[in-house]
Design a binder for these strands. Sequence first.
DNA 1: GAGTGGTCTAGACCACCCC
DNA 2: GGGTGGTCTAGACCACTCT
Lengths: 250, 250
Amino acid sequence: MSESPVPHEPPIYRRIADGLRARIHAGELRDGDRLPGENALMAEYAIARATARQALAVLINEGLAVPKRGSGVYVRQFKPIRRHGARRLSREQWGQGRAIWDADARGRPFTVDRVEVALERAAEDVARVLDSDQVWVRRRRYLVDARPVQLATSYFPAHLVEGSAITLTDTGPGGVYARLAELGVPPAHFTEEVRARMPNPRESNLLDLPGGTPVIVIARTAYASDGRPVELNEMILDSAAYVLQYDFDA
Amino acid sequence: MSESPVPHEPPIYRRIADGLRARIHAGELRDGDRLPGENALMAEYAIARATARQALAVLINEGLAVPKRGSGVYVRQFKPIRRHGARRLSREQWGQGRAIWDADARGRPFTVDRVEVALERAAEDVARVLDSDQVWVRRRRYLVDARPVQLATSYFPAHLVEGSAITLTDTGPGGVYARLAELGVPPAHFTEEVRARMPNPRESNLLDLPGGTPVIVIARTAYASDGRPVELNEMILDSAAYVLQYDFDA
DNA sequence: GAGTGGTCTAGACCACCCC
DNA sequence: GGGTGGTCTAGACCACTCT
């Protein structure tokens, strides 16, 4: 009496989404092209409005499409910035009056935004890494082509950087790494921890992220040659704007 | 006559989602706890079913919650595997009969699954990187604690590895890197390119990903000491299962 | 069997964009 | 002004889970 277990057909909204996705990957729908809208899908497939919305939501949540109010849903593009790991932190770059970020924008103009500098009580995990309860915190946002692409928060042990330009909005030529060198603790070693997740609402807002865009989180710890941690930098990157590159020998 | 531009209240479904998110971050709702379901939200806020669903969908798409059919919506956890970049590829590890992956599971048992080996015509980008039209392709899936965590596809120039154990399902002790060494082209340099995006349906299936989980994509190219590329390995990682770590000196 | 999430219909009003 | 996506209601049937 048992029914043979037939593999279920996917629901309509999935089949519609699959069809649109295939057309995107086939190049039939290209970067910036307008997808069939809710009304078009309702007519074409004889479905209710909510079902058409559901199909489009799939592609939006996959990051393949972006909705524009009052206009339509459009195919999305991916033109990333290449961020180099090891190389970009080499001594040549921060030893000669150049800020690290220079290397990232690769000739494209970039700006810094929403700079905040404050002395704060360290959160538990920050305190553990830096071995310090009080920290100077530097927050800022980076933009390329007027588009926000990264949020960054740097933490420094308070006792280490007190009185230096690191506690000022303008850190001077060479940035914080040049200042750390002047303090006798030039960074000698870096550890970067990288993960990815969906953004929280604050990050989504500050980075102006459309739905379906994950963020890459990089926690970079800089150590002086004696092994003391001198900076913890947490970076939140728009994953649609970045490719990370790491080079190393066997 | 102009209305002063009042900042709009967020829609109900957003406010409900914000409330639940706050309770999760406050620790009031913890890993694995059950969230209020659709019916509970309908009653509590006097809203329609679709609106309650929409609120829960926000958290699901953020990767903070996982729906279980017929049961409820649950708070999600993040217990990652630590994958080391530079260090894990050091000569000590692949020079002595140990496969690379050993280092990743950190003592936890791991298994390999769905191994496929084939000679194929290279896709355009693969052909460009490896400078070869014909490639041997090795596909497999990695599982930790019986849970799929990574898909990997390795490409080798066909003329280079023809006749070696790299073209067999079982590559022997030390894995493909030991075989490349025997062929006179031990990997001397690696480049890893890292990005993050939402998974496509195939990846979502093979990795058994709940909604709101991005994947990390690593494209690793291995070069012999003469600069020739000898392997291109594309890895698709469940972002909820991994933290990448890269160490380097200034 | 009762409760849960998954899918779907058929409406409605709104803000926004483009013509 | 007409079309678009954004939000919301009030229903319905289904498959699945738990007990």
